[in-house]
Design a protein around this nucleic acid. Sequence first.
DNA 1: GAGAACGTAGAAAGCGCTTACTGACGTCGT
DNA 2: ACGACGTCAGTAAGCGCTTTCTACGTTCTC
Lengths: 356, 356
Amino acid sequence: MTVTLADVAARARVSPATVSRVLNGNYPVAAATRERVLKAVDELDYVLNATASSLAAATSDLVGILVNDIADPFFGIMAGAAQGAICESASGRAGGEKLAVVCNTGGSAERELTYLTLLQRQRAAAVVLTGGALEDPGHIAAVAAKLARLAEAGSRIVLCGRPALPGDASVAALAFDNRSGARRLTEHLLALGHRRIGYIAGPADRTTTRHRLEGHREAMAAAGLAGDAEGQERATLHGPYDRRCGYDAALELLRRDPELTAIVAANDTIALGACAALRDQGLRVPDDVSVAGFDDLPFSVDAVPGLTTVRLPLYEAGARAGRLAMGTEEPPPGGVATIAAELMVRGSTAGPRARP
Amino acid sequence: MTVTLADVAARARVSPATVSRVLNGNYPVAAATRERVLKAVDELDYVLNATASSLAAATSDLVGILVNDIADPFFGIMAGAAQGAICESASGRAGGEKLAVVCNTGGSAERELTYLTLLQRQRAAAVVLTGGALEDPGHIAAVAAKLARLAEAGSRIVLCGRPALPGDASVAALAFDNRSGARRLTEHLLALGHRRIGYIAGPADRTTTRHRLEGHREAMAAAGLAGDAEGQERATLHGPYDRRCGYDAALELLRRDPELTAIVAANDTIALGACAALRDQGLRVPDDVSVAGFDDLPFSVDAVPGLTTVRLPLYEAGARAGRLAMGTEEPPPGGVATIAAELMVRGSTAGPRARP
DNA sequence: GAGAACGTAGAAAGCGCTTACTGACGTCGT
DNA sequence: ACGACGTCAGTAAGCGCTTTCTACGTTCTC
């Protein structure tokens, strides 16, 4: 029924071992024999059975890339870059093609662990985890344990845009400098003269959310605007990284402080939702309220006005993570590299102006 | 070293067969025995080796989802929905978890075939192909052949947002009604009174591009505005589905016909790029030039002005494709379902007005 | 109370590959 | 001319599971 290595061997009048060696190119085979085998492969339209190969060789050609939300370009860009780099790294050696697969956790702790187990089942060659982590201690421990087992079993682990694991230098980590990016963004607003600044923070239980919020508060504190804990809470709203959250939160911030002159959002999508809300309230950006985002996603430059934001080199980081996963790039010293963020000032921020 | 089924069996004092049966839940095992086995699994932190399982059972828990561009939410939304549906369908049966993996072809014919081969190697349980196909006859034939071999080997094949394969009803296809969506969009512009309409079409060699362009031209022809072939060519520009293309093409269309009053783009991303170009030229949307897109991606509603576009139920289609891939939904009669598109009129289109 | 029927578990034969190990030739140095 | 060596190919032993077939109590059934 299905054609196997043995069928190819029979047709080429060689032993199965020889066919295997031709296909894997890891052992000298005489040119004439090789030709004969290749011809048989072609004629029978034979495709190696990866499950059998992996089992026998105790290797795998699967590389997993975990993302929180595949519909979000933030992850799409990183994942695409990683996948590209993996294909590229693999194309060198014969038969070394890796199947780079992206797994969408939807931000769910359970799904993340399920995927990790599935990848472990598959004895994946490497796994790349992108984006911020959930800050539940139990979950962090569970993930760390899983990653340790994976690493033990020979999988390469790479974190991309995710903080390094506490106390594990064996895992390469590419961490975004969210904190100082956020700090610089808020400093920019403060320098323009804003004092009443609202912050829309993203989901409360994620590292990315926390780091950006900390950066923002650092800047506020440095300007003597920290306020008390309650005041901070009042000026900060949490919610998912989507436009709806930005829309609703902007309305709520405005309700809490009608004199607000600026809104900083934890990502561009939220920021754009906030802009829409302001517009619907008859407020102009930046004339009445300045708005800033984070990430510099492709559509942010085309927003009207262009969105002031913090640029993260998502593509470069993803590609580097892919190379790290393939072992074609040296891990950073200490296992951790911090990726700098760059402030992008566009039209959505300007000096404050009293509203009539 | 690595713990195997046999280790678990030894510790639970049962045979390997029993452990396998407990783990797969496909055979009666006494409750007490099951407990003992589960305890041993837990204590040894054992994880099934999927390569061995797949080899022995001649099955696979891999489902591949092919996308053209993972960074594009058009694909991200479909892929995420499909992946969700697959997880959901799988969660019922014990051990039935599928590893839904998305593969990014980058729109390259070569990568598409490579991934298909890799998936075939893995004996994937199903493969979902999303988005338009490349219209190179050689490539189409190669893909059709690969899919035939995959189907023959027992993989379920589902096309999502991709036209049905010529002459193969065994493959379920969810085809978007791009043609009539585009027709209705252009009719809307014509009804507003536009006569000089430019079209930015996307990459020349893709089915989606062609179908949308055909719909547009149908509407133009029905209004007696078909013009000759040369005129059509002049009013149509091709390029990638990105903002840059939209920006450049809008400039070029304007150069070719300064009296242009409307631009229709083959997708929202292009449309937004076109809006940016118009703005940079000092032209207002929709006052000076109306702009329309296609897809209704999440950010289109927040564009300023809101983008008139054609809504495709990407999420629903992706989820349905996922269920089809899992066999939890009946394939449509004849193997093909056409997914309707809905016109979304927003602020970016209005009646033409002579420019000073 | 004998035999059928049932529920549960083990033995063992693969699944389709990879890869030591082994062997058959030539070729080369001396 | 002879042994040492290098090159290429075959043999066969698994890799870690699944599953068929068999076996051994129990519980019914008449």
